[in-house]
Computed example of a mutant assay.
Amino acid sequence: MKIKKILIASFVFALGVNPLFAQKTKPLFPETPGMVSYTFRKSLAKDPAATLDTLQKLGIKDMEFSSLFGKTAAELRKLLDERGMKCSSFGVQYPDALDKTKEVGENAKALGAKFVRVAWIPHKGPFTLEMAEKTVADFNKIGKQLKDEFGLTFCYHNHGYEFEKHEDGTLMDYIIQKTDPKYVSFEIDLLWTFFPGADPAALISKYPKRFKLMHMKDLKKGVAGNMSGGTPVENDVALGTGQLDIPAILKAAKKSSIEHYYIEDESPSYATQVPQTMAYLKSLTY
């Protein structure tokens, strides 16, 4: 028996595989991603219940809503509960977060969300230090009220224009560094980090405890970026078919404080691209 084991080990070694170090590959992203409601915005606006049925069939259980789609928060929560789904993040406009914080907090709690997210800072022209300074003050105020009164975590979703140069970094660095970690966290949008020339994996690694949420999206090959914060929706492509190094980003994310990963696909081809994205994520190993 001992000789047989030695012969088998010798055979395996001869094939170039050392049994002491041989390991099966592990899935890089074994979980089912969440979904940003904006991906299905047109169908949700027409028939929220039927759209949630479609998402449920795709295996989606975690939602980030950026609109109530004509429902009350309680009505939308009921539709989710009936399908075994949840809303973990509620996205609102900057003015509402600032001037209607109590209403926003009440709606987020009614939805069952843990996070409140803002994705755009109103501005004209290039984003400036003065704008960033006001943003920091506003975000600290919003975040404190949401945390103190509702137990919610406020997150800012970057959109590209914040990566204007500032000192040794960018205005995005300034916002992250100057906001209070007790009250302000972040949602990294992969496309809107890459588009202005930044590296999503490096940004996550630089601030591993500040990002709590992620928008997973890819940029069409050949498209050049800029600081505008805008690009045609057709430039959103299925993960793995664009310019971003998704595996490197996810490896960095797994070492960070990111809790929820949402697919966001703004393109008109979302119906075919979303299943493609989900299949790609399941295929990744390390």
Rank of each mutant, 00 (worst) to 15 (best):
Ala97Gln: 08
Phe69His: 12
Gly105Asp: 02
Glu82Arg: 00
Glu164Arg: 11
Phe127Glu: 03
Glu82Val: 02
Glu75Ser: 07
Ser88Tyr: 10
Lys102Ile: 09
Lys134Glu: 12
Lys71Gly: 08
Thr128Asp: 11
Ala119Phe: 08
Ala113Pro: 02
Asn107Met: 13
Asn158Arg: 03
Leu80Lys: 11
Asp96Ser: 14
Gly112Gln: 03
Leu76Pro: 00
Val136Arg: 01
Glu82Ala: 12
Ile142Asp: 01
Glu167Trp: 07
Asp168Met: 07
Gly160Gln: 01
Asp148Phe: 06
Ile142Ser: 01
Pro122Asp: 09
Val92Lys: 07
Leu76Cys: 05
Leu80Ala: 13
Phe154Gln: 09
Lys141Gln: 08
Met85Lys: 03
Met131Phe: 10
Ser88Ala: 13
Leu111Asp: 00
Pro126Val: 14
Ser89His: 06
Glu167Phe: 08
Ala113Gly: 04
Lys78Cys: 08
Glu167Lys: 15
Glu164His: 10
Glu167Met: 12
Glu103Ala: 12
Val104Phe: 02
Thr101Glu: 02
Val136Thr: 06
Glu106Tyr: 03
His166Arg: 09
Asp148Gln: 14
Asn140Arg: 04
Gly70Pro: 05
Ala73Gly: 10
Ala113Ser: 11
Lys114Ser: 14
Leu80Glu: 14
Gly91Lys: 11
Gly70Trp: 06
His123Lys: 13
Thr101Cys: 02
Glu103Pro: 00
Lys147Glu: 13
Thr72Cys: 04
Cys87Gln: 04
Lys134Pro: 07
Val118Tyr: 00
Tyr156Asp: 03
Val116Leu: 12
Leu111Thr: 00
Tyr94Val: 01
Lys100Gly: 11
Gly105Asn: 03
Gly84Ala: 05
Glu162Phe: 02
Lys86Thr: 14
Val92Met: 07
Tyr94Cys: 05
Glu130Val: 07
Ala113Leu: 00
Asp96Arg: 13
Gly70Phe: 06
Ala113Ile: 00
Leu76Gln: 10
Glu106Arg: 08
Gln145Ala: 15
Lys141Arg: 14
Lys114Asn: 15
Lys78Ile: 05
His159Val: 04
Tyr156Gly: 05
Val136His: 05
Gly70Ile: 01
Gly105Ala: 05
His157Gln: 14
Val92Tyr: 06
Lys114Trp: 09
Val118Arg: 03
Asp96Leu: 12
Val104Thr: 10
Arg77Asp: 08
Asp148Ser: 13
Gln93Thr: 11
Thr153Asn: 11
Met85Thr: 00
Thr101Ser: 04
Val116Thr: 13
Met131Tyr: 13
Gly125Ala: 14
Leu79Met: 14
Asn158Thr: 00
Arg117Gly: 10
Leu129Cys: 12
Lys71Val: 06
Leu146Cys: 10
Lys78Glu: 11
Ile142Met: 11
Gly151Ala: 11
Val136Asn: 02
Val116Glu: 11
Gly84Ser: 05
Lys86Ile: 12
Ala74Leu: 13
